[in-house]
């Protein structure tokens, strides 16, 4: 599936604008997606994610900006593009009366050089369900079938709109396995999701959309919050006889355990703090701090801080 696009950008967007009535739902978005990478578009509901993706898929027109998808303008869904992209929408319609294999075969029949149906089903881990009616699948299997239909035409670029929304954790993990497998197929993937864990797990790069603008972007581990988020040292006071009063001196700040006895202390120097806490525990005649952990800020923490910061900033500037 690796075609001549190696090293080029599969998708480029500059200054994309879309207005509904007077509202600029997409307000000057820039994106560039390299061939072969998994790119994730993040953002809260109403941030313009779906509108942006639908413009890239050719379902919507734009009001301004330059868009190039595999070197073509997607507006009007030119045939030269439709045969080279795969689209997995949030809803894929009803094929309940067809079997899994028939549903995939149907889509295969619409492309010039499709994958064999069995191969497409193997890619999404559905080989054993090929003779089952689509309507009898579980939610997770249903979504994997959608992905198979998007893949069977050997697309160079695959759009995946919230592929795991509504799935249970086990089904979500299986979908991740499927999507990671795509990396070896050389398909470029544009993924939208609400789950930060998913983006952190799958994406090579992400862009965060808030209020129709890209407020941050890059590899997920390099995403920076608007203000630094400190690592958090946490542990639980399992009995009421801990000398809580001494903690303030140990930590250098007022410490109040929550109702279940959890103590959470943000710190720039977790190692030093843990040493001091260990001394404090020993002086109280204890050897263990129950459930001790250091929590690094996750992508979700960074994302929430970004969304919160920019949403508030945009509110003020309006």
């Amino acid at each position: 599936m690796d075609r001549a696009n190696e090293g080029l950008n599969a998708l480029e967007v500059e200054g994309l604008v879309k207005c509904y009535d007077d509202r600029r739902v997409v307000d000057g978005v820039d994106l560039s997606i390299r061939a072969g990478e998994i790119f994730c578009l993040l953002g809260p509901n109403g941030a313009g994610k779906t509108t942006t993706v639908e413009i890239l898929e050719g379902y919507r027109t734009r009001d301004a900006g330059r868009v190039s998808v595999l070197g073509l303008d997607p507006e009007g869904r030119p045939i030269g593009l439709r045969s080279r992209v795969g689209i997995v929408l949030q809803t894929t319609g009803s094929f309940e009366r067809l079997t899994v294999a028939e549903t995939v075969a149907q889509f295969a029949g619409l492309y010039p050089d499709p994958l064999p149906v069995g191969e497409a089903l193997a890619l999404v881990d559905l080989s054993e369900r090929s003779e089952v009616r689509s309507g009898d699948l579980s939610g997770g299997q249903r979504r994997r079938l959608d992905v198979a239909c998007g893949l069977v035409g050997r697309p160079e670029l695959l759009f995946l709109d919230e592929p795991t929304t509504g799935l249970d954790p086990e089904a979500r993990r299986r979908m991740w396995g499927v999507l990671e497998g795509l990396r070896t197929q050389g398909v470029t993937v544009l993924l939208t999701t609400h789950y930060m864990e998913e983006a952190a797990h799958l994406a090579d790069r992400v862009s965060v959309l808030v209020g129709g603008r890209v407020v941050a972007g890059g590899p997920p581990e390099t995403l920076a919050p608007p203000e630094p988020i400190l690592p958090m040292v946490e542990f639980r006071l399992d009995t009421p006889d801990w000398p809580v009063g001494e903690l303030t001196a140990v930590v250098g700040d007022v410490v109040v355990p929550d109702a279940e006895g959890w103590v959470r202390i943000p710190t720039a120097e977790p190692t030093g703090l843990i040493v001091r806490l260990a001394d404090w525990a020993r002086s109280a005649g204890r050897t263990e701090l129950v459930d001790l952990a250091v929590r690094r800020p996750s992508l979700e923490d960074v994302y929430l801080a970004l969304v919160d910061h920019h949403a508030r900033w945009m509110e003020v500037s309006r």
């Binding site: 869904r77 889509f107 035409g153």
Partner: peptide, 8 residues
């Protein structure tokens, strides 16, 4: 039909 519209 939206899904089919995305095919050739």
């Amino acid at each position: 039909l939206k899904r089919l519209a995305g095919t050739p």
